[in-house]
Simulated scan of single mutants.
Amino acid sequence: MTGNRLFTIAQKEFFDHIRSRKFLLIFGILLVVAIVGMIGGISEYNKTLDQYNKGQSTISSDIGGEMTEKPSILGVFSSVATYLVFVGGVLGIAMGFDLVSKEKESKSLKILLSHPVYRDEVINGKALGGIVALGCALGVVLFIALATLLVYGIIPDGNELVLIAVFGGVSFLLIFSYFAIALFMSTTMDESGSSLIYTIIIFIVLSVLVPTLANDTVMENVIGSQPELPQELLDQMQISPNSTGSSTATVVVSSPVNTGNSDAWKKYTDRMQVYSEKRQMIHDTLALFSPTMNYEAITSSITYRTSNTEMIGRSTNSVTSFSTTKTASAGVEDILGKIIANIIALLLFPAVFFGLAYMRFMRMDVR
């Protein structure tokens, strides 16, 4: 009997969502930006694939100019992930900010609770209806994305399908996180307008302000500037003029990076390692307070499947730069092992805020 009441409430909420104009409007925008993102990503993937194929048929004489790994189609989803961060968050907020507050304003909540129905059935039913609607919306988006790949003749393999499924799962968790926050504010505020305002403020803080704290400027003020390459290493890089003319185009003759026996280089890389670890620690700490940062970390690992890198030093006009020239595609197990902490952190947001919404609703004084 309890299950029937819960299912009835969830069913009502689900159909209310999919029939509402705000849901259809935001869902339509989400579909459009997803399709545009997919088409742009596919175009970039085809260009990169052409470069890779040309690189395989010719031997490049330029150090670092050879692409050694075939591009993954997961990179196509990077543009979709960028749009989902904002549009998906807005969709979750729009579906949750007035879920309870509008019934408090219309006094219909008091009438509902006067019937033989438990409060936990009401809040759980409302949440379940919203979750199913969100899942259906995201499912359609992913279906359209896969269909777009097939239209362009791109067929994912088994490992790529697994990672696409993971991408869809974490995208749902991101949207559900902001839905849960909106639901909590809806149970806390008596008016839908106030609920929306406070939810948007939280959204801006979590998706804009907290990630801003992890940018280069803030990091430099907290842990200092990145270690600079010592002059000793710059001096070791021999530069010879181009003999074909009077211009001074430069080429690299030798590099301490390639010799592998430079104590100065080892000290420099050790300092860079310490600096990178400090930055990563601060970034991971901030990510605990931002579902957007966790989502971006996960999707970045999925869409850019690179792990091991080899750094080649290059000198041009006495300025040393480094480019990643060799990449090793990470396997599914490696990627999942790398992002599992972010997935757990992303799971905590909807769990915590739905728990708060549940407790608030159970103790709510309805008059």
Rank of each mutant, 00 (worst) to 15 (best):
I223Y: 02
K266S: 12
T299Q: 04
L138N: 14
P350G: 11
G55E: 09
K267Y: 07
A137Q: 09
P227L: 08
M67T: 04
S329L: 09
G169I: 03
S225P: 07
S177N: 02
A357M: 02
A127C: 14
V36M: 10
N215C: 10
T324A: 06
A287C: 03
I223S: 11
F14S: 12
A81P: 02
L183T: 08
I282E: 02
G245I: 00
N53F: 05
S43A: 08
V251K: 07
H115M: 15
F172H: 06
I154W: 10
L91I: 10
L91Y: 02
D62V: 15
S195W: 00
L6Q: 12
E160R: 10
D120G: 06
V205P: 02
N221M: 15
Y178M: 10
L173V: 07
S290D: 04
Y178P: 03
I59R: 11
I335A: 12
M1L: 12
T48E: 13
D334W: 07
T269Y: 01
V366W: 02
S106R: 01
N124F: 15
S290A: 06
T199P: 03
Y45S: 02
L84P: 00
K107D: 10
A345P: 00
A351T: 15
V140L: 14
D190Y: 05
V251I: 08
R271C: 00
L183D: 03
